[in-house]
């Protein structure tokens, strides 16, 4: 095994022996190698704790550290960009037996990942509401209108009230009265320089996902109504418009000149 390969394996896995070929003129080789092992593991644990602060808080420092250590061993980063590390952490948590008693933990991680992604998402500028208003003059074309959403817009449907849980943990004092067993849908977006998280009816997330997958306004609204009979299209549009989340409009090809 080549030196860097052995070194790499040994820093990621504390069970592996210290690689051969290391020396120290005046010190103890193994305890010095341990500095690298600790730097690597601690550095990656910190990166995860930073992206998943609510998960870390929910399970406590020790549990988080050991869970993260196992994840790191299984899925070391494949990119030098640490803000993207841990995309698969939520799935790992979902399969992590010792976390079974907190069934909402994986979705909490998914929500936190969406927040980080929204924070760093590409910049895009909202369409002028007057351009939207102009569309009202040709109502028969509205159904075929395609709305481009801001790259930071994301959705999550969970069987647990993870948006409420997330919100409670943004504050030092935990709010009383959380019932996590209720399903909750969440919209995440970046408004200006801030990431905002909204607990919404399930029709909103169905609507947004349909728009994002290329459906026009009419079919997306109908899909949302199918998912949620109480879906309120005007409120859903108001949420998007007031948060600068509609960044482009394009009419469907058949009504283009």
């Amino acid at each position: 095994m080549r030196l860097q390969e052995a070194f790499s394996a040994a820093v990621l896995d504390s069970q592996q022996p210290c690689p051969r070929g290391l020396v120290s003129r005046n010190g103890h080789v193994e305890s010095r190698f341990a500095v690298y092992r600790n730097n690597v593991q601690k550095g990656l644990i910190n990166a995860l704790a930073f992206s998943y602060p609510v998960v870390a808080r929910l399970v406590g420092e020790y549990f988080f550290q050991e869970m993260a250590r196992l994840f790191i061993k299984k899925s070391p980063p494949d990119s030098p960009i640490m803000s993207t590390y841990g995309v698969r952490f939520a799935d790992f948590i979902g399969d992590f037996e010792p976390a079974r008693s907190l069934p909402y933990l994986a979705d909490t991680a998914r929500l936190e990942r969406l927040c980080v992604a929204a924070y760093h998402a590409a910049d895009a500028w909202a369409v002028d509401p007057q351009v939207l208003a102009r569309m009202l003059k040709v109502p028969e074309s509205l159904g075929q209108l395609h709305l481009q959403l801001h790259p930071g817009v994301a959705t999550l449907d969970s069987p647990y009230a993870v948006a409420d849980l997330w919100a409670a943990h943004q504050n030092e004092e935990l709010s009383q009265g959380l019932d996590l067993s209720l399903p909750q849908s969440t919209v995440v977006l970046r408004y200006g320089l801030s990431v905002e998280v909204f607990a919404v009816r399930p029709g909103y997330t169905a609507f947004i996902r349909h728009l994002q997958s290329g459906h026009a306004l009419g079919p997306a609204a109908e899909h949302a109504l199918h998912v949620d009979p109480y879906f309120d299209l005007s409120q859903a549009l108001a949420l998007l418009i007031t948060h600068d989340a509609i960044t482009d409009l394009s009419p469907a090809p058949e009504i283009s000149p």
């Binding site: 860097q4 390969e5 070194f7 790499s8 820093v11 990621l12 690298y36 730097n39 690597v40 550095g43 990656l44 990166a47 070391p76 980063p77 494949d78 990119s79 030098p80 640490m82």
Partner: peptide, 8 residues
């Protein structure tokens, strides 16, 4: 090392 980034 290879595909893995060790962040140190």
């Amino acid at each position: 090392h290879g595909p893995h980034f060790l962040n140190d």
